[in-house]
Design a protein around this nucleic acid. Structure first.
Lengths: 140, 140
DNA sequence: TCGTGTCAACGACAATTGTCGTAGAGCGGA
DNA sequence: TCCGCTCTACGACAATTGTCGTTGACACGA
């Protein structure tokens, strides 16, 4: 791993508020503080709160800042997938002792999954079993 | 919902250290501070740290304390299942926008699940689809 | 009874987190 | 040119979290 340029250092786990901002950036793409702040109106928090969070996230490496314009443009430094994987792995270790089964059970029983989701998961299971067999033959 | 007696008030989400202690209590059952502390040796933390955490957890309602003995005995006030459900729901909302599919995908791809796990999940899917059909007829 | 070791209570502390207020910098229109 | 807006920078603050140190209360054996 770490073969191609993506050095992607060790960014810390985002906090709750930070994750909320990251979700906005993932959804809307790079944007200014003002835009991000407007996207989270209703939280009742002030503009400087959003600004401060983004500034600290920049220091942590969670977001990148383009200062070429008067209004700085922020963009997520980590992908949604990578972050989600990190969070799931973390929860898996901390709350489930590393066993994914119970996590999946809870996830599925928590929110009524759609029929499409169920079949998608079923397909994923098929692929995993396929690969499992392949591995069994390759690495005995 | 909230049909049967289990009123189970609103305990806060356990922090990282608190969750670690809860896992010990879940696994070993009610025990003293000393025993819990021994179970987490290697973390390099002191006895009073464990004590303080358990005391604060008592105030929060995360654990219950039996003071009838000189060495107080603590036990988890919430079940592992309920806590896991809470944590999964939380992560689902905060990181996945409420869609369980991606969470399941990450969970399964994160750690190579055993063949038993896979078939267990498959069975769960069957049950969910079964119930889904039932619900569709009962609550249109 | 006295000493020694175990344990709980309390307070303290640094780091982190979420939240602002205030002070300037810079730009665009009157 | 000057005014007003928009934005950033900086610092401050309370609450939370993880971590101890110190101080007493207790209990049990010598």
């Amino acid at each position: 791993m770490s073969s191609s340029g993506k050095v992607n250092k060790d960014v810390p786990k985002p906090t709750e508020a930070e994750l909320e901002l990251l979700r906005i950036l993932w959804e809307r793409g790079p944007d200014t503080v003002g835009a991000v702040h407007k996207a989270r109106e209703g939280q009742g928090t002030g503009y400087t709160t959003t600004l401060k969070l983004l500034q600290r996230m920049t220091e942590k490496g969670l977001v990148l800042r383009d200062e070429s314009q008067h209004a700085h443009v922020y963009r997520a430094a980590i992908t949604a997938e990578k972050t989600q994987r990190q969070l799931v792995r973390d929860l898996l270790q901390r709350a489930f002792g590393g066993s994914p089964l119970q996590l999946v059970v809870q996830a599925l029983s928590e929110k009524r999954a759609s029929a499409e989701d169920l079949s998608a998961i079923r397909q994923l299971l098929d692929e995993m079993e396929q690969k499992e067999d392949t591995n069994r033959k390759k690495t005995p």
